[in-house]
């Protein structure tokens, strides 16, 4: 069979070990598929979405209730975005737990962390684009956190919001961030990340001499597996979209009353919980940033994993990195659950 365009995006053969689901969890590939779903459904939503404070929430209602299958497209976009955060997190955990971040993959790890941060920012900006009464509190809180940063806080706030009052003027900024200024970097970094996976020798496995199984699979088999994974994830997305509609709330007209029940989106519930503990700069900016920094520096501050440990689950040579990321994950998970 002659390889087509899609086959050519893959190496002719790869070690069979690398393509096993239990080795990768399929997390990186699923994340790529989810990004593709987000791009397609996002473009479709743009045909109807109106980035204007008076019209935005109404246009979301139009998409949800009146555009043929608009509800499905919006729900797919929503669920793909939520799953992207979950699969990106799983991907990060897998990379650390299988010691896959060591040289020569340290730079690609940085690219991945960049994508990880961008995914969260995209999710947050997309959440704000609903422009309904539920988004005002997270918007005000999130953007006010920027103000607490010494020296550059006000500048960052203006950059993000474009005015004095977030709930009145941030929509166009967030729209541009979401549609262009964050999405374009995701596409560039994403392609770069995928390129570096191949450049760095594919998905991490021990050197050939240390591999227990020398078997390889062809690009045809690899593409088939990817297609199958896409079909299954696609089916799961559709089921989620049909059974659990994306949240929607009354349109935000003017400055809504902020209530005590105001909640951050689920992926920032842990930050909201932190904010209850004290100074917003310390708990809302410094600690989350320190956690991010710790994650970013994992390949640089911990000794490189032993060659025979690369691509093995929970190897002994990077135990410290495993403990650190586990503590971070548990910390975030517990704060999220406490604040539910």
């Amino acid at each position: 069979m002659r390889p087509n365009f899609f086959h050519h995006l893959h190496p002719p053969t790869i070690p069979a070990e690398q393509a096993r689901w239990r080795h990768t969890l399929g997390a990186g590939g699923t994340a790529v598929f989810l990004v593709l779903v987000l791009l397609v459904t996002g473009i479709l939503e743009m045909f109807y979405y109106v980035p204007n404070p008076q019209e935005a929430a109404l246009s979301v209602q139009r998409i949800t209730y009146h555009v043929p299958y608009g509800w499905l497209i919006r729900n797919l976009h929503y669920w793909a975005a939520q799953l992207l955060l979950i699969f990106a997190s799983l991907h990060l955990l897998r990379v650390v737990f299988t010691a896959a971040y060591g040289p020569p993959r340290r730079f690609n790890y940085l690219l991945g962390m960049g994508l990880f941060v961008l995914a969260f920012l995209l999710d947050f900006t997309g959440y704000i684009l609903r422009w309904d009464v539920e988004v005002c509190w997270p918007l005000v809180t999130g953007t006010n956190l920027l103000k607490t940063i010494p020296l550059i806080g006000d500048f960052l706030f203006r950059l993000a919001v474009g005015g004095e009052n977030a709930c009145e003027s941030a929509l166009l900024r967030f729209y541009t961030w979401h549609i262009f200024a964050l999405t374009l970097p995701v596409v560039i970094l994403g392609v770069w990340h995928a390129f570096r996976v191949r450049r760095d020798g594919g998905i991490a496995v021990p050197p050939p001499a240390l591999r227990p199984n020398p078997e390889r699979i062809s690009r045809f088999e690899l593409v088939r597996r990817e297609v199958q994974a896409m079909l299954i994830v696609g089916a799961a997305l559709v089921v989620l979209s049909v059974l659990f509609p994306a949240p929607i709330a009354p349109a935000m007209i003017g400055q809504p009353v902020l209530t005590e029940e105001a909640r951050a989106p689920w992926f920032f519930l842990w930050v909201q919980q932190l904010l209850k503990w004290g100074d917003p700069f310390v708990f809302g900016v410094l600690i989350p940033f320190a956690i991010l920094l710790a994650l970013i520096l994992i390949p640089y501050i911990f000794p490189p994993p032993a060659p025979q440990d690369v691509g093995r689950w929970f190897p002994p040579s990077n135990r410290l990195a495993q403990v650190v990321i586990t503590l971070i994950a548990v910390f975030i998970l517990v704060l999220t659950l406490v604040n539910r």
Partner: peptide
């Protein structure tokens, strides 16, 4: 692969 495609088709029918 065919089963997975059928699965997606069924979910689309559901939608």
């Amino acid at each position: 692969l065919a089963f997975s495609a059928l699965l997606l088709f069924v979910t689309l029918l559901f939608a």
